[in-house]
Design a protein around this nucleic acid. Structure first.
Length: 108
RNA sequence: UGAGCCGGCCGGGCGGCCGCGGCGGGAGCGAUUCCGCCGAGGAAAGUCCGGACUCCACAGAGCACGGUGGUGGCCAACAGCCACCCACGGCGACGUGCGGGACAGUGCCACAGAGAACAGACCGCCAACGGCCCCUUCGGGGGUGCGGGCAAGGGUGAAACGGUGAGGUAAGAGCUCACCAGCGGUGCCGGCGACGGCACCGGCUCGGUAAACCCCACCGGGAGCAAGACCAAGAGGACCUCCGGGUCUGCGCUGACGGGCUGCUCGUCCGACGUCAGCGGGUAGGUCGCACCGAGGCGUCCAGCAAUGGGCGUCCCAGAUGGAUGGUCGCCCUCCGCCUCGGCGGAGACAGAAUCCGGCUUACAGGCUGGCUCAUUCG
């Protein structure tokens, strides 16, 4: 996801699921290319820390794209505790959050 | 062996699996795919200086404003670097210094203290001179400390208007002299120079602060890669038209008649279909700039104390734009804790390129390495 408008729409319209280290917004799709965006604010830490968090989340999300409908639009917002969490913790939380958001989306 | 001083460098290593960005080449109409190569730092940071580059009506002079401030050298340039000088600190290696001018002028110097920049007299010292008292052989002598003389000693202070010694005196004082320190001058010598050394002379002493105003010398146009160029889109407006369209401009409203050239003055340039100001709102898609043969990296030789410069050889070395340079696992390394001395658990410094260079400053676990100083011991 590369457009500011897309971010706004996904955050506003998407189903939200919160975990200690992140908040996930999902707009379920029907077909096409799934797009993902990450938001890591300065509250998370310095530039080095933010980069590390973003990279970890990118890899973890890429591995779980099969669990969301194709064409969905996902925004993952990192919270401050993501800075100290391990990759295993981040992965578990991401998986739980995605499941909840998608499940909500299935029941309009 | 023990203390210490000054540099230079590194700043986790290896491997498996899965990924990302760029460039080159191959295949494909194409989306894409395959192969090869490259892919964060010494500070990429703070954005404090200096440049390159771009635009500003080619932007000139004076004033203002800002910056720099020992000397010489280096550099594209600098508030940088090197060498040296001076002052201060250290036994020393070495360190520190916003290091021009205080007879151009103005200002400030708290507290303490008698007195702090036209110096001053609290304690103290003195009794020459005047006064007063006593004695007198009428020459004078003694006392007092009222007037007075003095600034040596004490005391205050960051600083008290030179120091030591002698002469001198009532007591004293550069009052006089010798030496020393300091100031100014002259001559000679050394050095490109800052400056240093020696000799002589002078008045005998004349504070500090310019990170206070100020004075002097030198330097400085403004804005910045969202600079700027091109393409696409584009409400509205202006002009042309063969009514098909084309060209230019580029959001709206309000206001001014002037405005630009950094501010002011001179000067100069642009303008009324224009320009500028204020308010309110919106957008920032693509390509280039820009990934770069360069103030370039590495090696070596030469010149130089060095900064640096030159010759030769060799290499091509990140280029994203919601922003790649990674994720994960294992072994090793370092450190910390526990402890059954061999394992277990945890941690791995500061920190992430954004137009590009040269510096400065700040942050940094731990480690490697070179040179030098002092003390002690042995030979």
């Amino acid at each position: 996801m590369r457009d500011g408008q897309e971010f706004k729409q996904a955050v506003r319209r998407g189903r939200k699921a919160a975990e200690p280290a992140m908040v996930v917004h999902v707009v379920p799709g029907t077909d096409g290319v799934t797009s993902v965006g990450f938001v890591v604010s300065k509250a998370v830490g310095t530039a080095v820390v933010r980069n590390r968090v973003k990279r970890r989340l990118r890899h973890l999300t890429a591995a779980r794209l099969g669990e969301v409908p194709a064409g969905s639009r996902i925004v993952v917002r990192a919270r401050p505790s993501a800075a100290t969490a391990t990759s295993t913790e981040l992965g578990d939380q991401l998986e739980a959050a995605l499941h909840r958001a998608v499940a909500h989306g299935d029941r309009p």
